[in-house]
Simulated scan of single mutants.
Amino acid sequence: MVMAPPHPLWILELYSGIGGMHTAARESGLPFEIVGTYELNPTALEVYRHNFPGTNKPRNIMGLTVEELTNLNPSVIMMSPPCQPFTRQGLKRDVEDARTSSFLHLLGLLEEVLRPPDMILLENVAGFETSLARDRLVSLLKTRNYVWQEFLLSPTQLGVPNSRLRYYMLAKQKPATFCFTLSDKVQEEFPLCLCVKVEDSVTSKTGSCHRCTRPLLNSLHTLLHKFHSDRHPGSLHAVTSYTQVLPSLSHYLSLTDNLEPYLLKDKILNKYHMLLDIVDRESQRSCCFTKGYAHYVEGTGSVIQHNTTVNMAETYSKVQLLAADDSHRLELLRELQLRYFTPEEVTKLMCFPDWYDLPQSITNKQKYKVLGNSVNVLVVTSLLLMLAEN
């Protein structure tokens, strides 16, 4: 079990979005209190308040002052700053992008505040690790006497059939240490044991798992075992590692009827069928869902072949032989019943728990957009447990 902190974690949740960080804190089982949240997007705020009633009024980080930060006195800052300045689509303008201003403002506050937070957990897109914004963050951490570790991690490493490679940083103020060995390099795997069976995880005198030789953190192990037992019960007996065999998407899918709202339109099928990433219920993978899912086609997430009685490879072979204006081509593609994942299915693949809910007051387009900007809850929960361990 995690060594409980002397008092609840006082968490300042910045760029709080739909509450992915708050959800991760709740799922961790650690005692915590959210001392402040900062978010401006009205849809995200509506989703947040739906799941955490009475919380999260609109607040702009640019209005945060040293005095206010001192009064909040967070022991942990959890944040996922805007990623667009560090993505190809966002032109990679880095610190020159106006959307980085609030993050740079925060770094300035952390330089000045008398007592900076004990811990920091930051999430962003892959690419942040080579940015000037990251360099300024590291410079601050050195000045304020932190130790830290950087990661590039995906939910697939925790047994979730969805790719979502993201940058993460964990930081602690000295003399605190981590429960794993630190490296100057960005780590591309979890440094702790991810073996499955609770009853088989026998530790040696060094506190390492006999099976994988990595340090064993019981709270992390319990979290992952419960997650997978709940999501796909009975499927753990045949594997020894979460990454050995990923479960099928069938454990995350729920739509069985009323396909019409989610079926790809004819114009999409006709024009973009060769660009689609297609999976089915038995697939053990899916692509990262972005905020443009179901609005743009390329690189925004996978689609599902709902009718698996039709052979997709044979269908595509036949389609390729037909002219673009041949009506039979569209008929063949329709038979596959290609559909989008529902927002609720995306929510599950991003590992939000069953108690978390998307309000019906917002549209599917809005749901996809805020989900695409959110975090994978299981990854963040796992990292929070690692961060809080003494």
Rank of each mutant, 00 (worst) to 15 (best):
N218Y: 05
T206G: 03
V202L: 11
F180A: 11
A176H: 15
V196M: 10
L246C: 06
P215R: 11
V239Q: 05
T240K: 12
Q173N: 05
L194C: 09
Y242C: 02
H210E: 14
C209V: 10
P215I: 07
L246D: 07
L223D: 03
F190S: 08
V239I: 15
S154G: 09
S241V: 00
Q244L: 09
M169S: 13
F178Y: 11
F227N: 03
V160Q: 01
P155L: 02
D184S: 14
S235E: 14
G234N: 08
F178H: 12
E189P: 00
V245T: 09
H237T: 11
V160W: 01
R211I: 06
L182A: 02
G159Q: 03
H228M: 06
P161K: 06
L236Y: 02
E199N: 13
R166P: 10
P175E: 02
N218L: 14
A171N: 10
F180D: 04
L170G: 11
T213F: 02
S154R: 05
L192Q: 07
H251P: 00
C193K: 10
E189D: 14
S248A: 13
L192R: 01
L153E: 07
F190T: 02
L224R: 04
C179G: 13
Q244Y: 08
R211N: 05
L182V: 15
S183T: 11
L182P: 08
T243D: 12
L224E: 02
H232Q: 09
L246P: 06
D184N: 15
H228W: 09
R231K: 15
L170E: 11
Q157P: 02
S254Q: 12
S235T: 15
K174G: 01
L249R: 00
C195Y: 04
S250R: 12
F180E: 09
T206N: 03
H225V: 02
L246W: 03
R211P: 00
T222L: 12
Q157C: 01
Q187A: 15
Q187G: 00
F227W: 11
F180L: 06
K226I: 13
T177R: 15
H225C: 06
H251M: 00
S254I: 06
S229E: 14
C193F: 08
A238L: 11
L158D: 02
S248R: 03
P175F: 08
T156P: 01
C195K: 05
K172E: 08
V198M: 13
Y167W: 12
K226M: 08
Y167I: 05
T177Y: 01
R214Q: 15
C193P: 09
P233V: 01
L253G: 04
H210Q: 14
C209P: 05
E189A: 12
K226L: 13
Y252K: 04
Q244D: 14
S241Q: 08
T222S: 10
F190C: 04
P233S: 12
L182R: 09
D200S: 13
R231P: 00
F178V: 06
T156E: 15
D230M: 06
